[in-house]
Structures are given as structure tokens and as C-alpha cells.
Amino acid sequence: MENALQIARESVIDELIQLVSFCLDHEEYGVDVLKVREIIRMLNITRVPNAPAYVDGVINLRGKVIPIVSLRKKFNLPEAENDKRTRIMVIESGSEMMGFIVDEVSEVIRISAGDIQPPPPVANGAIDVESMAGVVNQADRLLVLLDLEKMCSLDNSLHFDNAVN
């Protein structure tokens, strides 16, 4: 169903897409607004032992326990103190939810699907290419489109299973 929608979206090149843009170490990123369930302020995070390093822990989101990933850690960016602009973006994938810590959520922008370019082949090591969905080149701004859903997909969790054992 979702795939069908995506295909439908892709087929109409001029269709407008809404992105939530956010900051991470002074760089701008974006995610599809339809994937974002909510954006919340920092909560008390419970550390989870033996989880991969980029998983900060779990939080209680109105009775549901969801894992929280630090995008800074995930992308090997220098760690920063949480401040009043730090937010958790809750992404929904299937029946599960997952939170991502970002420095700051800026705005919702509209772009046409034609503005999305495939990710450049440069793998500078910081962002893993797999979670990069594309690059948006619009007038004076350049932002990296992320597929956070992919990050919480199952193969990823399998990955870290192996890492733990």
C-alpha cells in the first residue's frame, strides 16, 4: 500500500512533497513529513545495556516504550549537550515507532519531486549512504533527504545483533 503510494508519487514528477527540515551539527537535513508521527521535547531516557552505541536508550511515549537513536552518534558527528532546542522526531514504520534525536527542527518546506537528486556517490564516511534518500537542491539551500524508516528496518537490527554477539 505504502509502496504503491510511493510509486504513484514518483510517477508524478511535479508533485509537491513536504519535508520536515532539521539541523544536525550545522547542516540541514530533511525527512518526508508523512513519515513523521510527532516531534517532542527531550524526555528522560532510560539507557539500554548492550544496545548499539548510537541507541541512547528508550523512552515512555504515552505508555509505549520506544527506542531512541542519537543521529549525531549514528552519523559519527561530535557529541553535543542537549539544549532547549533539542528535539526527538518520532518516526513511524509499520506498527513500530522510533525516536531520533536532532539538534533542532526548523520548518516544513514544500519542494517538487523534481528537485530531489540522487545522493552523490561520495561516501565521506559520516552518513551511511543507505539511509540517504537523496539531495534536495533548491535555490540557495542544499539539504540531505534521509530515509529514517530504513534505519529502523529489520535488517538493521539484525546487523547489530551480530555486532553484539
Binding site: 545495556p49 548492550n50 544496545a51 541507541v55 528508550v58 516504550v65 527506542p67 513500530e96 529502523c152 537490527s157
Partner: peptide, 18 residues
Amino acid sequence: KSLGSFLANLPGIAGSTI
């Protein structure tokens, strides 16, 4: 409460509670 599939199979952890 389940930890979800992403954090399933952590050694020594069976789940979570609030």
C-alpha cells in the same frame, strides 16, 4: 512492554516496563 523488533534479543533483557 515490548522493546520492539529493533531492540529485540538483547542479551539479559526480557522487556521493559513503565
